[in-house]
Design a protein around this nucleic acid. Structure first.
Lengths: 250, 250
DNA sequence: GTCTATACCAGGATAGAC
DNA sequence: GTCTATCCTGGTATAGAC
């Protein structure tokens, strides 16, 4: 039994129901939310965020009117504006909460795992499982980044870079320990990230093919283990042309 | 010298300047464009499409007003409407022209290459080089698919599946010929596609790191060759758990 | 805390002069 | 072929009753 994580276990470890997320969001944004009773506020925030994510992910946040939102959430326009002061603030709240949770969960999941192979496997599994549980949030964050104002936009990019750096650091660590062969870690990190993102961006496709998140995780881990496996001592280099060429990593 | 393609050669082979693309689009849409003189029409279409792609890719097609577009293109609102009859039609035109070119170029590029390894390399290179030349179109197509009406939306998805099927067919062919080891070709195709898409979706990132499209292509080809390489006869399977398990491919 | 009614503006679209 | 002026809908946001 190695350091494997399965999806059910993961779900048990993290509390990420819409209600949990909205409660945390409420507690972290009390100043800007006019409603003071936690019960009421959380109940309505759940309705608002569910509706906002559903509509936005179907036709885009810009195309979602607040009249749409009001109808879908079952609250009047006036009520909506007691939870946020502008449409833009609603956008920011969703993005901020998403980033907060991602950072916390990813870090906690790799904490204490030292072996590079296990660490790499775990971060891949954790990212995929997390994006499965919070699929609408991840999809939304990705698609609506461009609609953020400068400040929040910058934070979104930092968050993206942060995740990627976890990956490249692990690869570096594995190369130092000779557990991985020398490859361009920067590109390797980028394409792993691309594969992780594809899971939540194309979920309809994978669902239609009955591919579970665990199967996808196994596949990605296998692919990347194969690529990073040290060469047997007597073997011919797999590619003379494209192996590590000393290009400086960022 | 194998069947390699470099980016300069590719650009010489295909005619894909904005003017070429707009001329083809004009000739293919004469009914719906009120302007009849080719010279005038093509000149203005270039302005319109450049402006539309620039603004849309910065803040989204929905968020782009026709007043924005009019200003950026240097044409009046009235003039714009002689080239398309509604904002939605403009969207459809961009998407249709994009799909048309992608299909034609990809098929022509792999035509005549029979060896599965070379064929796989070529399709990866061709897709990356094409998306490099037409980056704004690719980015736009990806991001604005959800804004399409039902019919066009369906076509966009078909086009996506089409590209992926080229990949999985090549993998199948390579497996039949024992040039590739048995893997889940459906998942392999999906993640290759994800890597190809990352190139045009995150171009700012790669540009900032001074990674050229050729370097990226080499990296992806190397990664996937390594993964698909047949196992040496006496070796231990790389992963007992995740190798091909007879899951039906779609 | 929540609703209804309304202000006000920006959006897509078009008519008709040139 | 192109522009300006204008129409009208539907958007965000708020005031004030309950």
């Amino acid at each position: 039994m190695d350091n494997d994580l399965n999806f059910e276990t993961f779900k048990g470890l993290v509390s990420l129901s819409m209600e949990d997320l909205c409660r945390e969001l409420f507690l972290g944004n009390r100043e800007s939310i006019r409603i003071k009773k936690e019960q009421v506020a959380v109940r309505n925030l759940v309705k608002i965020f569910n509706a906002a994510l559903t509509i936005s992910n179907a036709k885009g946040f810009t195309a979602m009117s607040l009249r749409d939102l009001s109808k879908e959430a079952g609250l009047s326009m006036g009520a909506l504006y007691t939870y946020f002061s502008s449409k833009e603030e609603l956008l920011d709240m969703i993005q901020r909460q998403g980033r907060l949770v991602v950072k916390r969960v990813l870090l906690s999941q790799i904490n204490g795992i030292d072996d590079p192979r296990n660490r790499l496997k775990r971060i891949i599994q954790a990212h995929l499982f997390l994006s499965e549980v919070m699929q609408p949030w991840f999809y939304f964050s990705y698609m609506e980044t461009k609609n953020l104002a400068k400040q929040e936009h910058k934070r979104a990019i930092e968050s993206e870079i942060f995740t990627e750096k976890i990956l490249t650091d692990i690869i570096q660590q594995g190369q130092d320990a000779k557990a991985f062969r020398p490859v361009q870690k920067e590109l390797a990190g980028a394409v792993i990230k691309a594969m992780l993102q594809d899971w939540y961006l194309k979920r309809w496709k994978y669902a239609g093919r009955k591919i579970t998140v665990e199967k996808y995780a196994d596949f990605v881990v296998d692919l990347i283990y194969t690529y990073l496996a040290p060469l047997p001592a007597n073997s011919i280099p797999r590619s003379a042309k494209t192996k590590h060429d000393g290009m400086p990593d960022l």
